[in-house]
Amino acid sequence: MSYQVRLEVFEGPLDLLLHLIKKDELNIYDIPISTITQQYFEYIDLMKELNLDIAGEYILMAATLTHIKSKMLLPQEEKVGEEEETEDPRAELVRRLLEYRKFKEAAEDLCEREDIWRDVFYPKHEVSSEFEEEEVMLDVGIFDLIDAFKEIIQRMPDKTSIDIIPEELTVRGRMSALIERLDVTGPEGLTLWALLEGDTTRRAIVVTFLALLELAKLHLIRLLQIEGDDTLRICRISSNDEAGEAEGGDADDKETD
């Protein structure tokens, strides 16, 4: 005999608790804590049996439930003359469940919106490429750069001269030198060959290569390739551009016009 186990995927312990409450039509404001604790542990056991990873959050909730249960078992202290009721040990949990449920509903609402709006399409604008003849610049991946460097290094004359390596040849130093050079060249940038002029040793080329990688990672430069040409170009991304893109603001649009 085989059992078919259908285990719903829960987003977390709160989601699981809400499910248990809904399933048994329990009153969320008056949760029978021992029933729910028992059911919660059954689920945890089931997850264990299925070899699912049980996140720490589930264990924490198990502890919380047990704690509440034990508190509920304690006899209420009789406080003569005091009108004030002691807080229900479940209050905090109920508050969290209600709060979570609110956002769960909000997420469902977003999901419905997503269903509708992902089927809406807009005209695409390709004005700039049609109206002005522009070079189409392709963004280049890191592997194109690696290929280019491999080529350069292979082309280098195989000199066996022993270089006395000057101390100032550091990636950091090269990074700032590159940025300075790119800042004065303007938006069209420099070709990789131009940048490597003056790098006569293998070591110098490697340092430039590492510096370029680091700058690309920091989003300070962009690697571009003009369509139909395999020359790599390196351009500076100015910090202004980035801010403008992020805002998508009107002021920025005016500037570029």
Binding site: E11, A106, A107, E108, D109, L110, C111
Partner: peptide, 11 residues
């Protein structure tokens, strides 16, 4: 489509 955790977090 966005996952449930994503939608929840976005909400």
């Amino acid at each position: 489509k966005l996952s449930r955790p994503s939608l929840e977090t976005l909400a």
